[in-house]
């Protein structure tokens, strides 16, 4: 009886080893798929940028949208944006109205009379610099990528302009630069970051509604922002690993 049991367990052992070995082999075949989930936290000492936007502080002046257009040569026409501001208005009957005339640059016209407004607020939008970014996942050639410090960048000298990444971005943060035919997006002002300067949108924000910082540094303002506020990300159900944290995000915001 005992012997039998031993045999059985040995057989089990070989069986299990076989399964594990087969599984490993199969997993290695699938390794291209792994990359979609592995960009997060590779070396924990490196900087890993995150962004915080405070909806309570945003006054909808769209200085960020203007500064971004000037700093990054975002085409004024036709009407693309790396950074823009939306005004959400929820009426007493629960209807959601959103507007962003010229990305907020042209100011807002409130069509809802004040007595019928249940609540209203501004939502500044920009690239979420996702850690599991769907846009870099789908680039067929490797022309867009997450930089070692967690910024989603584009290589305009390599982009083929297939627009698959534009389709894959759930937040509408990508567009095709009409003169180049290649994709363009927020770089978190990578050229400024690397010289120790704040991104243009953060520099010009008059109310300090925007901040960024190293998510791996527990003492950074960024980490404190996440810790001290109830923050949320856009479309969390899509599991994009968004590193853009909003304070006071309403569920109506998409």
């Amino acid at each position: 009886m005992v012997k039998e049991n031993k045999d059985f367990s040995r057989r089990e052992f070989f069986k299990k080893t076989g399964v594990i070995a087969g599984g490993v082999l199969f997993a290695s075949l699938l390794s291209p798929l792994k990359a979609a989930q592995s960009t997060e936290k590779s070396k924990s000492d490196d900087t890993w940028y995150g962004i915080g936007l405070d909806i309570e502080k945003c006054i909808g002046c769209a200085s960020c949208a203007r500064a971004c257009k000037a700093e990054n040569d975002v085409p004024k026409e036709p009407f693309f944006f790396r950074s823009w501001v939306e005004q959400y208005t929820i009426t007493n009957s629960g209807e959601v109205k959103v507007q962003s005339p010229n990305g907020g640059i042209d100011g807002y016209k409130q069509p809802v009379p004040e007595s019928e407004i249940f609540k209203t607020f501004f939502v500044p939008k920009m690239c979420n610099h996702c850690s599991k970014s769907p846009c870099t996942q789908v680039c067929p050639v490797g022309a867009t990528f997450v930089s070692p410090d967690g910024v989603v960048l584009v290589d305009p000298n390599y982009c083929v302009g297939c627009r698959y990444c534009v389709q894959a971005c759930p937040y509408g943060c990508r567009y095709i630069k009409p003169d180049l035919g290649t994709v363009d997006k927020c770089t978190l002002c990578y050229h400024r970051l690397k010289k120790g300067m704040d991104p243009a949108c953060m520099m010009v924000c008059p109310t300090g509604a925007r901040l960024y910082g190293n998510l791996r540094d527990p003492k950074s303002e960024m980490v404190k922002f996440i810790k001290n506020h109830t923050v949320g990300a856009l479309k969390p159900n899509l599991n994009t690993g968004s590193k853009l944290y909003y304070n006071a995000l309403s569920q109506e915001v998409h």
């Binding site: 291209p32 798929l33 990359a35 979609a36 996942q137 789908v138 680039c139 067929p140 050639v141 490797g142 022309a143 390599y158 982009c159 083929v160 302009g161 297939c162 627009r163 698959y164 095709i176 180049l180 035919g181 290649t182 994709v183």
Partner: peptide, 19 residues
């Protein structure tokens, strides 16, 4: 339909396997 049609070969020379 590509914005840069003459770069189409990149999909063969550096295919990004997660795409």
């Amino acid at each position: 339909h590509l914005g840069k049609p003459f770069r189409f070969y990149e999909i063969m020379t550096t295919p990004h396997l997660t795409s």
